[in-house]
Computed example of a mutant assay.
Amino acid sequence: MNTRLKDQIAIVTGAADGIGRAIAELFCQEGASVCVADINEVAGTEVVNKLNEQGFNAIFVKTDVSCIDSVKNMVEQTVTQLGKPSVLINNAGIIYQNKSFLETPTEQWDKSFAVNLDGMWHCCKQVIPYMKEAGFGTIVNVGSVHSFKIVPNHFPYAVTKHAIIGLTKNLAVELGENNIRVNALCPGMVETPAAFKWFDESEDPEAARKELGDIHPLRRNASCEEIAYPALFLASKESSFMTGQSLIIDGGRSVVYHL
């Protein structure tokens, strides 16, 4: 086992699958005790059972990040069972695809902000007092390339992801004097279970996968593990003088001018 997060207590939201799961697994391998926080109880419990079978220290707490009481309970359970959190990975999020501005129902707008933005604020509000008390901490807010670029028909996902950058910068400035670092991790196209579900719904899944991969200079999509390692960098002492920044991991897609 490596030790870049030895003795750290980490909360990872949206960790039942995809990027969050990869982060939780890697953090355990690097010595952290991890709370897997997710609304999916079956998948989240499965993740934690596998981690515990491997000798790691992990717990699952069913969490709806859009509900402040649910988040408060999750953090309390983390403190009771693992210890006071020193690392927070705000990863939970939702996306509504193929929606233009005028086609977006009010309830989808509200739900997008409730999960993607309010959820991060709820977690920060509950965790930051413990970090202040300890005199250190790291927060990683998972944004997206949508935090900087607009892809048509992904409204209001990009709006929420833009807002995450503002939240990250504001918290970084406010919490710097407490030795609490706050950064954003911004992935591009990642082959999550949700992405494979989308591929499978197309007429030719492999062609759909290749088409998305080919828009990147690296000519492929990212694996979940390729996002987990940058998250580890931001959470560890290796990035100790980095705060208020956005780390874009997108295979070079955002630097390409043409579609």
Rank of each mutant, 00 (worst) to 15 (best):
V87A: 07
A134G: 00
P230E: 01
G93V: 04
A235L: 06
A24K: 13
K210H: 06
E30I: 12
E25D: 10
K125R: 10
A231W: 15
E41A: 11
E201W: 07
P129E: 08
N141S: 04
V142Y: 04
R181L: 06
P85Y: 03
C123V: 04
N153C: 00
A207I: 05
L175N: 03
W121V: 13
N40T: 00
S70R: 09
M74K: 15
K125D: 09
M131Q: 09
Q108P: 00
V182E: 06
S223N: 04
P230T: 01
G188D: 15
M74H: 08
C67R: 08
D17T: 14
E225N: 02
S239F: 04
P152K: 08
L234E: 01
C28M: 12
V42H: 15
V255E: 03
G166L: 14
L51H: 11
Y257S: 14
T63C: 15
N141A: 10
K50M: 11
S112R: 06
R220C: 05
N73E: 14
M74V: 14
R209P: 05
Q97L: 05
V159Y: 01
N153I: 00
G244P: 01
S236E: 03
Y257G: 08
A58R: 05
L247W: 07
Y157A: 13
T3M: 07
P217E: 06
V75T: 15
E133F: 09
T243K: 08
S144T: 08
K149A: 05
D214E: 13
G166D: 07
V256F: 00
F56H: 13
N49R: 14
Q77W: 01
A10N: 09
L175V: 10
P129W: 10
G188E: 11
R209I: 02
M242Q: 04
V190H: 12
V36E: 05
W198D: 12
D118T: 10
Y96D: 03
V79K: 07
V34Q: 06
I19W: 15
D200C: 05
N116T: 04
Y257K: 12
D7Y: 08
L102E: 11
V42P: 06
G20C: 04
T3W: 04
S66V: 00
A158W: 09
I95F: 05
K197P: 05
N98H: 14
F113L: 08
C224W: 13
V159Q: 02
V71W: 09
A208V: 03
C124Y: 01
K237Y: 07
T192L: 03
G244I: 05
N221E: 15
S112N: 13
G119N: 03
V173R: 06
G18F: 09
T243L: 05
G135I: 13
V255C: 05
I39S: 06
G251Y: 00
M189W: 01
G119K: 12
G213D: 09
Y96R: 12
Q81V: 15
L185H: 04
A37Q: 13
W109Y: 15
P187G: 09
N52L: 02
V12K: 03
E177V: 13
N2H: 13
M74N: 10
V173T: 11
C35N: 15
F101D: 00
K149F: 04
I150V: 14
P193I: 07
E177Q: 12
I164A: 10
F101T: 13
N116W: 01
V42A: 13
I94F: 10
D204Y: 01
S147Q: 04
E107W: 12
I248V: 15
I128H: 07
Q108M: 13
